[in-house]
Design a protein around this nucleic acid. Sequence first.
DNA 1: ACCCGTGTTCGCTG
DNA 2: TCAGCGAACACGGG
Length: 277
Amino acid sequence: MPELPEVEIHARKLRRWATGRVVERAEAEDTRILRPLGPAALRVLDGARLSTVRRLGKNLLLSLSGKNEVVGAWSHLGMTGKWLRRPEEEPTPPHSRVRLHLDDGQVLHYRDPRMFGRFLVVPGARFDELPELRTLGPDPLEQGIDVPRLHDAFRRTRRAVKLALMDQAFCPGVGNIQASEALFRAGIDPRRPASSMSLAEIERIADGVRASIVYTIDAFHRLGQDGEEDLEYVDEGGANPFQVYDHAGEPCPRCGTPIERVALSQRSSYYCPSCQH
DNA sequence: ACCCGTGTTCGCTG
DNA sequence: TCAGCGAACACGGG
């Protein structure tokens, strides 16, 4: 269930595994993941060489050079998507939805049990024409957070600050976990109206987002989940490196007050009632 | 059995 | 007209 840090880990793995390699054959089951193009669209990937992997928010953008033209592929991991690498001779893992057979005897599997993810061929690698990417704000790591713009956008919404922070048009890559973590670091109650944030508080939120993302990426490295092993999500029994997320009832790492859980728009939020106002 | 879930889109509503 | 909310999607794990 990937947010920006997990997608970044996937981007690095895909670069290490496949940059410069040729996709000898792409295959996929006909699932909603490929909609609306379907499996036939994958044919243009056959024989294409992977040149670059870019991450934008929670999106992975693959650029390949085919026989006569450049071709792109857009991958979004949804809630349960991940990329795995397996030798050709190994059996296909369960819920493998897309397979890229490489010229080194390895296969990249896009595995996604719940099928909330996407994998679409993008002719000419013209990613800017994808409607799903057009509305994305500046990436927090690539372009950086535009604090005045965020302040302006938050001023004119009636939503709780945590829900506004999860809007991909403002701060793409932030999801349910990173929003909780960033607001804890900023000392701001997730239920407060976004419109009530001062410029100084937006600065603290931006700092919190950056710090939490960097910390989480580093934590996955330290946990050894960025090696050749597969990235294990927290809800699958992986270690929980977070300060407040999924820590209800446990002491706040800053002041010891028990962390509380509250639902905002059917999403769990975690916060310290004494550190966050 | 039942509830929960790191995401996004669609349709209804005020 | 549109922001905002709940439901839906689909499946595994606790």
